[in-house]
Each structure stands twice: as C-alpha cells, then as structure tokens.
Simulated scan of single mutants.
Amino acid sequence: MVSKVVFGRGSFNQLSEILAPKRLSMNAPFIYIIDDVFKNNQWLTSRIPLAYDDKILFISTEEEPKTSQVDAIVEDIILTTKELPSGIIGIGGGSVLDLAKAVSIMLTNEGEAKDYQGWDLVKHPAIYHVGIPTISGTGAEVSRTTVLIGPEKKLGINSDFTPFDQVILDSELTKDVPKNQWFYTGMDCYIHCIESLKGTYLNTFSETYGNMSLELCKEIFLDNNLTAEESEEKLMMASWHGGMSIAYSQVGVAHAMSYALAYVLGVKHGIGNCIVFDHLEEFYPEGVKLFKAMKEKHNIMLPQGICADLSDADFDKMTTIALNLVPLWENALGKNWKQIITPKKLKELYQKM
C-alpha cells in the first residue's frame, strides 16, 4: 500500500517540503515525468520545485505506455545523471503514473521492462517515487501494478515494490480535464468496482472499498446537485477506493478484453473499457444497465465498428492476448472459466464492437 498520502485542493503546493528530506545529494536529481499536455501550462509547471540537476521529462500520452518507452527513459536518466536519482515524480494520468512507477523499478533492476511483466518478478526495491494524478479514475495512483504494452502482450509489472511511496491528491489539478476524457476515465473507476464486487476473488477488504467507490460513482455521474469542486474531489476519492478494491481482488472481463484492444488497435485504456463494457450484459447485467444510463445522461457517443476491418489473424491475436490473462477470467467467471468463455465466443464479442 502507499505509505504516505496528502489530500486536498492546493496540496500540490506542498511538493517542495515533501521532497526536500528525500534529496540524497546535490548530484542526485529528482526526475519529473509529466504529461506533455502541461508543457505550456505555467499554472502547474511554475510550481514545480526544481533545484540542482533536477529535470522535467514531458511525455506524450497519445499512445499507451510501452516497455520500450520505459527502457528509453531509464537509459536517458542513467546517461545524463551523475548519481542515481533521489526520486521519480509522476504528474499526469494513468499512463504517466504507470511510466513513473516502471522507471523507478527499472533504475534498480537489471534487464528490460518486458522481463518484469507479470506477478512478483521484481527483485529489488524501486527508488523513491511520488504519484500526482491530474485526472481521476484509473487507480494507478494506488495500485501495485504498472500496465505496459510489451513486444508480446499488454500486462502490468505487478509487485510489492510498484506502489508509490508518496501520493498527492489535489483535485484542483483535474479541473481542466475534457468532458469525454473525464467520462472515460471515470468509467474505468466504475468498471473497477463492478468487476471487483462481482468477482470470485471478492473479500471483505475489497468489498468495503469497492462499495464506497461505487456509491461515489453513482453520485458523481447520476446526481445533478454536485458542484464542480465536489465532483472533482469525490471522483478523486472514488478512484482511490476503486484502486484499493482491485488491489485486494482483481478486475474481470472488460479489462481482459480491452487490454487486447489496446495491443492490436492502440485503443486507449479508458475508452477501450467503455467500448467493451457496453457489450457485457451477459456478465454484468446490472452494471451495464447503469453504465448505459450514465452514458445517456452525459450524452456520450462511443466509437462504433472499431473491429469491422480486422482480419482473422487480428481477431486470433486479440483472443489469445485476452485469454492469457488468467487471473482476470478466474475472478470474473470462477475456476471453470474456460468452459464459459471460448476463443469462438470471445471473437463473437469483439465482432460486435
């Protein structure tokens, strides 16, 4: 679990005093990995406490984060810093937070990032790393995974060394998120809750957090009485609780299928989950019904026909990738999940999209 958390509007201003005791030396910089949407945003960048050899790496999030991208960032840091960095600070959405976690791990572990895609493969603790979300819903700020697209699969580096050492939850940083992105990422949180609460891995710990997150999602996406600030703060906490819920259980059908969409078509995670979940009445009837009500209320039109031009080889690749995510299917459908979801049935689901 994340050991230290600061919450509240304006808490980003505490970053300097949070980092100061963690600086190892003048030659051990803090490296800021920041979504490049903030590149010309003085409101945010002017408050970053740069000193000595600290530097900012602006990262494009047009595509899902890749293992090769992690390796390139790590190599650049090693070649351009005099000492191992004092810490990695990720500022952005789920993609940037996952990159920050992965980079902090790979600075202390040999090999390539792809070698650590899986469960509990990391051997050495990561360097100090801080997560500051600027959009709410992914749960990346609290999860023990960093989801990456590798040469052969989309899969997280899942380990006890992955979670951030410090998180700053400042909902003011989410105030300019475009509406569609707000919805897609918020639905990532909602789908976390549904898949956790309806899964076979469910336990009292995950259920408690999942229920809190689900109730917040209902309030945010179906209630007309919230102010913008209330909605931002509640979604930030829904994201946190949803991430905690799946940390002690697992996600399910929508995530398994959307991972494959991302690998083959490059569909980003939030919208990919929405496209898939829209067709999963068989598995989550009540959850999908409520999702459709939220989608209608906010006038969201999901892309249609994204799989229309795929070849049989593409479909085979997607079904193989999705079905290899065994813990997700086992959580969703139980130990006998292979008798319920076959490659043929999975292909038919993809063909609806």
Rank of each mutant, 00 (worst) to 15 (best):
I191A: 08
K335Q: 12
I33D: 10
I157A: 09
A238W: 01
G270Q: 08
P327H: 15
V253K: 01
Y184L: 07
I191M: 10
G150F: 10
H255F: 12
R9T: 02
E233R: 02
I77N: 02
E112Y: 14
I220P: 06
F12I: 09
A51D: 09
P85D: 02
V177E: 00
E112K: 11
E282K: 15
H298G: 07
K297W: 05
L323S: 02
M187A: 12
A102Y: 07
F30M: 04
F315P: 10
G199K: 00
K335G: 01
F283C: 04
Q166N: 05
G139Q: 01
A100P: 07
K292N: 13
W337N: 13
S171I: 01
S104T: 12
I34C: 09
K317G: 11
H269F: 11
E75W: 10
V74S: 00
E110V: 06
G87W: 00
F30S: 02
K101G: 11
L216A: 14
N299C: 08
K289V: 13
G243D: 07
L235H: 12
M236A: 11
G131K: 05
V147F: 09
P163R: 00
P29T: 00
G270F: 01
P49Q: 01
K22F: 07
L290E: 15
E172F: 09
A293D: 09
S16R: 09
P65K: 10
A322T: 05
C193G: 06
I88E: 00
T174W: 03
K198N: 04
P303D: 12
S3W: 13
E75T: 14
K22R: 09
R144Q: 14
E232C: 03
L333C: 10
L328G: 01
Q250Y: 08
V130D: 01
E286Y: 14
T146P: 07
I89W: 02
I194Y: 06
I220R: 07
P163I: 03
V253E: 01
V37C: 05
G272R: 00
L121R: 13
I105M: 15
A228T: 07
Q69K: 07
L97F: 04
K292Y: 10
E286L: 14
N13A: 13
P49F: 00
T45A: 09
H255Q: 10
T320C: 11
K295L: 05
I48S: 10
T185V: 08
C189D: 05
A256P: 01
E172L: 13
T162P: 03
T108A: 15
E17L: 06
V2L: 08
G199C: 11
K82G: 06
Q351K: 13
L84S: 05
I191E: 08
L328T: 11
D98G: 15
K198P: 01
M318A: 10
V142G: 01
G90P: 04
S206T: 09
A72L: 05
G334E: 13
W119F: 11
T342D: 03
S3P: 15
R9P: 03
G334F: 12
L346E: 02
R47D: 08
K347P: 07
K114N: 12
T81D: 03
W337G: 09
V37Y: 06
G92C: 08
Q117W: 09
D223H: 11
C193H: 02
A293F: 11
K268C: 08
A262G: 15
P163E: 03
L235R: 04
I132M: 02
L349S: 05
L44C: 14
M1T: 13
V96P: 00
A262F: 08
